[in-house]
Amino acid sequence: MADNARTFAEVEQWVEGWSFDRAAPLGAAAPRQLLAAAEEILGLWLVAHGKAPSSRKVEEFTLLGLHRQAAKGDPSFNACRETCREVCYRFNLAATDLAPAEWRANLATLRRVVQHLVYFVGGKMRNAQIGEFCCSSRSLRTDEAEAGLGVG
């Protein structure tokens, strides 16, 4: 990643501090900035795990490509698959030229979904097992169990 890339905490702070006052003058750029923050978060997770973030697009979205890369071999990322897809869906809505009231609502929703992604991935930065044994249904000790060390 570039030397001037933001840290995880900086991106989190930026999303938490996001407001219409800051977004309104940006117009069409606002949804793109939020989408970029979501991409940044997954990129930072990949870098923290020794992987270079891919620029590959899936269904026209870099975010979905990054999610696929992060989820490879880590089924706990199941937990944010829908979130990433929701970000893309909400981005499409917010990027569409709508009446001001709808644009604001879509942008506010997009921000909340991006914020969810930030908190979820941030949680996984501190505690890798978030999402491991609930949504992904993966045992934390699968290797031990498969090696016959478990009581089963």
């Binding site: 937990a79 929701e86 929703t109 979904v113 979820f120 949680g123 044994f133 609930c134």
Partner: peptide, 13 residues
């Protein structure tokens, strides 16, 4: 229209 209907609540942690 609720965008976070299946979002993780971090419950297990």
């Amino acid at each position: 229209d609720f965008a976070l209907k299946t979002a993780c609540c971090g419950g297990a942690h």
